[in-house]
C-alpha cells in the first residue's frame, strides 16, 4: 500500500508518507522545532529521537508547543 497511511494527530486523522520521521512531520507543521514536545501513543518522545523515530500507521501523536499564557 502506497502513500496515504494515516495516524491520529492532535485528535484528528492525518495522512503521512511511509517512513516519515517525527522530525520531518514536525518540520512540515511548524516553522521551528524549538519549543515543541511530542507524545507518541501516550509516551513522551525525547527530542534527540525525533530524527530517528518513524511514524507508523495507526500511531496516536500529540504535538504540543508553547503559546502565550499567564
Amino acid at each position: 500500500m502506497t502513500g496515504n497511511a494515516t495516524l491520529i494527530l492532535n485528535g484528528e486523522e492525518h495522512p503521512h508518507a511511509p517512513g516519515m520521521t517525527v522530525a520531518s512531520l514536525v518540520a512540515s507543521l511548524a516553522q521551528s522545532p524549538a519549543g515543541v514536545a511530542v507524545e507518541i501513543n501516550g509516551a513522551i518522545l525525547s527530542p534527540e529521537l525525533f530524527a530517528q523515530r518513524q511514524v507508523q500507521p495507526g500511531d496516536t501523536l500529540e504535538i504540543i508547543r508553547f503559546v502565550g499564557g499567564g
Binding site: A30, I63, I64, R65, V67, G69, G70
Partner: peptide
Amino acid sequence: VTLALRRLDRSNPRGDILT
C-alpha cells in the same frame, strides 16, 4: 516569564512564542 502549552495548530503555523 510564563507561557502555556497547547496542541500545535496546523492551520496556523505562524512563528511561535519563543521567538
